[in-house]
Every structure is written in structure tokens, then in C-alpha cells.
Simulated assay, not measured.
Amino acid sequence: MTQIRALDLSGVFELVPVRREDPRGYFCEVFNARDFARTGHTIDFVQDNQSLSLAAGTVRGLHLQAPPHAQAKLVRVLRGAIFDVAVDLRPGSATYGRWTGLELSADIGNQLFIPAGFAHGFMTLTAEAEVHYKTSAFYDRESEMALRWDDPDLGIAWPKAFAPVLSDKDAAAPFFRDFVSPF
């Protein structure tokens, strides 16, 4: 049975599938709807995405989609390790504007569930980090939004050991103080 741990923002969970190991390696259920329902969410995931980041320190995010295309995400690492972050963008939430994060790694096999209403981003901790995530809504370019990954108002404690590698889009993302939440 998958181990589930609530993080400090309502609705965000770490999931750790149990690995059954033997001399050949291991087997685990990466996703089980019955186990996942223990988070209090029932979601039909409709799209799987995968990225490969070649350099340690690569930053992807902070990304989100506005309603009606808002996405919940279930994120895991297939190779390497990342520092994964969720930022609460739900104006009525007691934790609006706060973030939580944790290390996800292929070695551990842990996952992060991020509900709709959050921005998501990560920094790779290893070279050749491969990330896979499920989404609850299809990608919609018109609904796509982003926030600055290094916004001082958010104060995310990113790992300092790396020089960030960014896309032009992420480097030009707006600051939280200029963000109007669509949630």
C-alpha cells in the first residue's frame, strides 16, 4: 500500500509507493486509484508528460493553467533527482502565496501530488534528470500562466549549489506581486 504524507499546504501530498525487491530488482504500483483516494481526491488523469533536463540546476516553472483548464499534477522522477515545489494560488486559502517543496528521486520513488490552484516548478539536482507527471486536464496554451521561480515575495528556498538554467519564458515570468489569481 502506498505511503501517503500530507505536506504543510492543504491538498498537497507526498506519495511513496512500496517497492517489493528481490535479486532481479524491484516492482511497485506507481499509481493505484484506491490508494490515491486516501488523499481525499478522486481524479481522472487525462495526460502524461515527461521531461529530460540535461544539466543539474535546470529550473522548470513556476507553471500553472487557469480554469477551466486548471491542472492537478502527480509528479515523479524516473532518473536522477529534483527539488519539487508547489505554490498555493487559491485566494481564499489560509496558505495563499506560501510554498512547499521536497526532493523527489528515482532512488526513493516518491511522488508529489499538487492539486489545481497551485503553481508548480522544480530544479534538477542531478544531470540528466527525467521527470514524469500526470495531469487532470489537457494542456491548453491560452490558459498557460507562469510566475518567477526566484520571486523574493515567495521566498522559495531553492538549492544554492547550482547556477540556474532557465528557458527564456521562465526567465521573463511575472512576479507574484503582479499576479492576479484566476482561482
Results as ranks from 00 to 15, higher is better:
residue 137 A to D: 05
residue 141 R to P: 10
residue 162 F to Q: 00
residue 147 L to R: 09
residue 159 P to D: 08
residue 169 K to Y: 08
residue 156 I to Y: 02
residue 141 R to S: 15
residue 168 D to H: 14
residue 145 M to L: 15
residue 158 W to Q: 02
residue 165 V to F: 02
residue 149 W to L: 04
residue 166 L to E: 02
residue 160 K to F: 00
residue 151 D to W: 14
residue 136 S to D: 03
residue 136 S to M: 07
residue 154 L to H: 03
residue 139 Y to K: 03
residue 148 R to E: 07
residue 138 F to D: 11
residue 141 R to K: 13
residue 144 E to Q: 05
residue 143 S to M: 12
residue 149 W to H: 03
residue 154 L to N: 06
residue 152 P to N: 10
residue 160 K to V: 14
residue 140 D to Q: 15
residue 150 D to I: 05
residue 140 D to I: 09
residue 156 I to G: 03
residue 136 S to Y: 02
residue 147 L to Q: 08
residue 155 G to K: 05
residue 157 A to S: 06
residue 148 R to K: 14
residue 157 A to L: 04
residue 155 G to Q: 08
residue 165 V to C: 02
residue 138 F to E: 09
residue 168 D to K: 12
residue 154 L to M: 04
residue 138 F to W: 10
residue 150 D to W: 04
residue 160 K to S: 14
residue 142 E to T: 15
residue 169 K to P: 07
residue 147 L to M: 09
residue 140 D to F: 12
residue 158 W to Y: 08
residue 169 K to D: 05
residue 139 Y to Q: 02
residue 165 V to Q: 01
residue 149 W to F: 11
residue 154 L to G: 05
residue 143 S to E: 09
residue 164 P to M: 01
residue 148 R to Y: 00
residue 155 G to S: 05
residue 139 Y to M: 01
residue 168 D to W: 01
residue 165 V to S: 02
residue 140 D to L: 08
residue 151 D to E: 11
residue 152 P to D: 03
residue 149 W to I: 06
residue 165 V to R: 04
residue 157 A to T: 07
residue 152 P to K: 13
residue 164 P to A: 10
residue 152 P to F: 10
residue 169 K to A: 14
residue 142 E to Y: 07
residue 144 E to N: 06
residue 157 A to Q: 13
residue 140 D to G: 04
residue 160 K to C: 02
residue 165 V to T: 08
residue 151 D to S: 14
residue 140 D to T: 15
residue 141 R to I: 12
residue 144 E to H: 12
residue 151 D to N: 13
residue 138 F to A: 13
residue 157 A to V: 10
residue 169 K to G: 06
residue 141 R to T: 08
residue 136 S to F: 04
residue 139 Y to I: 06
residue 167 S to M: 01
residue 150 D to A: 13
residue 160 K to H: 05
residue 142 E to F: 09
residue 159 P to M: 04
residue 162 F to K: 01
residue 166 L to W: 00
residue 159 P to G: 03
